[in-house]
Simulated assay, not measured.
Amino acid sequence: MKALIPLDHLSEDELLRRQRGARTADERDRWFAIRTLTQQPHTSRILLTQQLGRARSWLTRVIKLYNEQGPEAIEDRRKGRAGQPPILNAAQRAALDERLQSPPEDGGEWTARKVAAWMEGQTGRRVDPTTARLYLHRLGYSRQKGQPVYPQAASREGPQGQQKKSGRWVKSSHSRTRTNESDPGARTKRGAARKTSSAKAG
């Protein structure tokens, strides 16, 4: 299937102006994605979504919305998004990082849905899997094949057990957790994400 490309609704200068004038971080990310794919249509969708800390489905929705309904559909009309407090505070993020070192309660492997359920239990707030994935990325975790999140399982299963399982969340040995981040659902620091993506590409 051919990747979606934003239509030429706006010039590059206008796209940049709208990105800079975005009222929320979510709107700014949408304009950034559209401007990037307008200037460089062959940009890797995987790298772009990793850079923004977003899901591929998010990018597809944004482009479809832009192509079908025009530039005005990209503007974030929701009130109160900017400045919204983070879902997890520093202590809770540290607790999540520690919790991920052991298997989940069902004995399986960690998924974004299970992490979201854990976050809901800690905060009493509704958390969707996409937001959980953003927190996983912020904590330095990425999806890799054949390696469990929790090191204890690796020693029990051995190499053969790891090869049979895939898609686990693995933490980079040289990643560092941010302690003063804002809500991943409301703001993503693209500079740090670019640095992480570049390191993976190298």
Rank of each mutant, 00 (worst) to 15 (best):
I5G: 08
D8W: 00
D8E: 08
E12Y: 09
R18L: 15
A25W: 06
E27V: 05
R28W: 10
R30E: 04
A33N: 03
A33G: 04
R35D: 07
L37W: 05
Q39K: 14
Q39I: 10
Q40H: 13
H42N: 06
I46K: 13
S57N: 13
W58E: 05
T60H: 06
T60F: 04
Y66E: 04
Y66C: 01
Q69D: 14
Q69A: 15
P71D: 07
E72V: 14
E75Q: 13
E75C: 09
D76C: 10
A82N: 13
G83S: 07
G83L: 00
L88W: 02
A91K: 08
A95P: 00
A95C: 00
L96P: 03
L96I: 10
Q101R: 13
P103Q: 12
D106F: 06
G108H: 05
A117F: 13
A117K: 00
G121C: 05
G121F: 07
P129K: 03
R133C: 08
L134Q: 11
Y135L: 03
L139V: 08
S142M: 00
K145F: 14
P148W: 02
A153F: 06
A154F: 02
R156Y: 02
R156A: 12
E157H: 12
S166Q: 10
R168Q: 10
V170G: 03
V170E: 01
K171G: 11
T177S: 15
T177D: 08
P184I: 02
P184D: 09
K189V: 14
R190F: 11
A192T: 11
A193D: 15
R194F: 02
K200F: 14
A201S: 08
